[in-house]
């Protein structure tokens, strides 16, 4: 075991394991938020904006209050704010939800860059990770297994959301709204209200995902913090076929792809750093090309969704 622990392969695998867990957490939250919104029959492409604004707000609040968890909550509220705007604007007749998503992405990142200027320098208290790997006695493995509590919150949320969709009346209402608005109306449900609430709640989750970026990994606020994770999460939800549990697995897969670049650096391969960094985007594109028109995807997609038509 000790001999294996010294090999480059072991270092690479451990770095990828740790990286997958770290990188996947924001994916997980954004994907779960998007999953909730899409289940109600609306698409929100603007979660990238929620992610960036959430990261900035979490960092600023954590800096001022000294409590990172207050920062997480504030990030969620900022996401709720953006989600509510998206939900309200899309409720108006003749408004295209995909275009509004692009606009909200521009608005959210613009607001974050504007408000975030003073917070690029100072350092705020970060979320403490739970050391789960001390028993192994291998420092690199212990480091990889120091897992942020938000990761477990995300998994619990996925399980809870899956249960919510399957076993509760509210879950049924959301699913019906997403599959057939006329059927929901016949049930006496306000389609607009359900979609508004689902979009706002989805925005909240994406904001929490953003807080992980600034408070845990990479762990500081700057303008290059997120590069498309919010949009990749939308692709991830399609790949996961609108199932919260599958969203977790897909997030881990995307996390592993995102961890290839830093992991290769850890074993001293610096050549092609940018190429490895592009891996998650290429993976997303390939997955979408192979799954977008599959039989399963058509069966599981909410019927009202504009993006799969």
């Amino acid at each position: 075991m000790d001999a294996f622990a010294d090999t480059a392969l072991f270092t690479l695998l451990v770095a990828m394991l740790g990286g997958a867990i770290r990188v996947s957490t924001p994916f997980m939250f954004v994907a779960l938020g998007e999953c909730l919104t899409e289940k109600s029959g609306r698409i929100n492409l603007g979660l990238e904006g929620n992610l960036v604004l959430g990261a900035m707000i979490a960092y600023a609040i954590s800096f001022h209050t000294g409590s990172p968890w207050t920062g997480v909550l504030a990030a969620g509220l900022s996401g709720l704010f953006l989600g509510a705007i998206h939900g309200y604007v899309c409720k108006l007749p003749r408004v295209n939800d995909i275009a509004v998503g692009i606009a909200m992405m521009a608005f959210g990142t613009g607001l974050a860059f504007y408000l975030g200027k003073p917070y690029i320098q100072p350092s705020a208290p970060r979320l403490e990770a739970i050391p789960l790997g001390e028993w192994t006695g291998i420092p690199s493995l212990a480091q990889a297994l120091a897992i942020n509590p938000l990761f477990f919150v995300g998994i619990a949320l996925a399980v809870g959301m899956s249960w919510f969709f399957r076993n509760t009346r509210m879950g049924l209402v959301v699913r019906t709204t997403g599959d057939s608005a006329p059927a929901a109306k016949a049930m006496g449900v306000s389609v607009d209200l359900v979609r508004f609430l689902a979009t706002a709640a989805g925005g909240f989750l994406a904001g929490v995902g953003g807080s992980f970026l600034s408070l845990s990994y990479p762990g500081s606020w700057n303008e290059g913090l997120s590069s498309g994770q919010g949009l990749m999460a939308v692709a991830l939800v399609i790949f996961a076929r609108w199932d919260p549990i599958r969203c977790v697995w897909a997030a881990l897969l995307f996390g592993a792809a995102g961890a290839i670049g830093p992991a290769m650096q850890a074993i001293g391969v610096t050549q092609g750093f940018y190429f490895f960094n592009a891996a998650p985007y290429i993976l997303t594109l390939l997955i979408m090309a192979s799954s977008a028109r599959s039989r399963f995807s058509g069966r599981d997609a909410p019927g009202e969704l504009s993006i799969v038509k």
């Binding site: 995909i98 990749m232 092609g272 190429f275 997303t284 594109l285």
Partner: peptide, 27 residues
């Protein structure tokens, strides 16, 4: 041909394009 949403794929291609440029410009 594949029914891939063009909004998402075109944005992903943007990030890939930027990565390609940096790959060569810094290499």
């Amino acid at each position: 041909a594949r029914g891939v949403n063009e909004t998402i794929s075109s944005l992903l291609l943007t990030y890939i394009a930027i990565a390609i440029m940096f790959f060569f410009v810094e290499g």
